[in-house]
């Protein structure tokens, strides 16, 4: 099946470039690997018939977010300091991530395959939410309205935080 070949191809590209994001010493190369990885994810979405999600993925993440990453990387000093690479927090976090990964892989090995989702009455084939604009919009404004609002609120808070951190409020007493 050609779809399978494409799946393995794009999965390999996605996973490989994701690994490169972490391992690359050069920050620009790492950011570009992230770009490749995101495009790979978009390709996987296309294989799942989720064209809308794929386009959004490329438009928002690959098109804008990574460009901003690169912008920041180019502006800051990329050589880094003499910071110790492994601090206590880093080690704990990576240990935790490793444990999660091992658990996941162990579960997969135990089951032999990823479970196919079971549908009630397995009647009509599931319409992918990301395929059409209408389905996507409906889900966004009905089922997932609360998460969307929460994430939006989180972004707003983050933006306010950035403004507070980056602006100097010398003239304003009440902010201090």
């Amino acid at each position: 099946m050609s779809t399978d070949i494409f799946f393995y191809l794009f999965a390999a590209i996605t996973a490989g470039s994701a690994l490169a994001v972490v391992l690359c010493k050069n920050t620009v190369a790492a950011a570009l690997s992230l770009l490749v990885s995101l495009v790979g994810v978009a390709a996987l979405f296309i294989l799942l018939d989720a064209f809308l999600l794929a386009a959004l993925m490329v438009f928002v993440y690959a098109g804008a977010v990574v460009a901003l990453f690169l912008f920041i990387v180019m502006l800051i000093d990329t050589y880094g300091g003499t910071r110790k690479p492994f601090k206590k927090g880093t080690i704990v976090a990576s240990g935790f991530a490793l444990a999660l990964l091992v658990t996941g892989l162990a579960t997969l090995a135990q089951r032999g395959a990823l479970a196919t989702p079971e549908f009630a009455g397995n009647a009509a084939p599931l319409v992918p939410v990301g395929a059409s604009l209408r389905a996507y919009g409906e889900q966004l404004f009905t089922t997932y309205l609360l998460p969307v609002q929460i994430v939006g609120f989180l972004l707003l808070i983050a933006m306010l935080g950035v403004i507070v951190l980056s602006k100097k409020f010398e003239g304003l007493e009440d902010v201090k």
Binding site: L56, V58, F59, G63, L70
Partner: peptide, 25 residues
């Protein structure tokens, strides 16, 4: 003829910026 036409144009053409960034860098 895909029904996400315009989004696809925007998505793909937004990748054009990397050529400029990469060339500059």
């Amino acid at each position: 003829n895909v029904d996400i036409g315009l989004l696809a144009v925007f998505a793909v053409s937004s990748l054009g910026v990397y050529a400029v960034i990469l060339a500059g860098w």
